[in-house]
């Protein structure tokens, strides 16, 4: 294991880069696999030079559950925001800022949470203060802010903490 790490510092990144190369060239010939492997290898060693903070990924089951939830929520919030856009003037003016306290501290977990919250229409990540661990959001349909806190903490944060911490 340590010998593998010495040659190939980020095996997952290597596989991801190789997969991306093969998708881009749309072929599975030996030459393209070799070229992709060389490029992925170079990419891994560039990553070593960048020296990212250590993180770990665990529990593929939790990842699959999170992906399913996000998929469902993107669908639902698209419908919700669509109905707000087409709705009356009254429904379009409930937008507002809110804050909540997060227990998640892993930088990778926070990055994934940022992508999830921004990609689901209706919630927009504005700012995270790491010293107070407070996240500021803008919400399009801010009628009950506790509902949003509950949604974020129960649906996403607990799973992200399982995966990244």
């Amino acid at each position: 294991m340590t010998r593998l790490k010495r040659v190939l510092p980020y095996p997952l990144l290597f596989l991801a880069l190789l997969g991306m190369w093969l998708l881009m060239t749309q072929s599975l010939s030996a030459g393209q696999i070799l070229l992709g492997a060389v490029i992925a290898f170079g990419g891994c060693w560039t990553m070593v030079a960048l020296d990212p903070p250590a993180g770990r990924l665990r529990r593929p089951g939790a990842m699959a559950r999170l992906a399913g939830r996000v998929f469902l929520d993107v669908f639902r919030s698209n419908l919700a925001v669509g109905s707000i856009i087409l709705g009356s003037e009254d429904r379009r003016t409930h937008a507002g800022f809110m804050s909540l306290r997060l227990d998640l501290t892993s930088p990778y977990g926070l990055a994934v949470l940022a992508i999830i919250l921004t990609c689901t229409p209706g919630t927009q990540w504005v700012r995270y203060d790491p010293s107070r661990r407070v996240l500021m959001l803008h919400v399009l349909d801010l009628v009950d802010d506790r509902h949003w806190v509950r949604t974020i903490k129960e649906r996403y944060e607990s799973l992200l903490m399982e995966i990244f911490e």
Binding site: V74, N78, V81, I85, R92, T118, T120, P121, G122, L140
Partner: peptide, 11 residues
């Protein structure tokens, strides 16, 4: 509020 609109098309 407009910030929420483009993510419909993008997702």
């Amino acid at each position: 509020a407009r910030l929420h609109a483009p993510s419909l098309g993008a997702t």
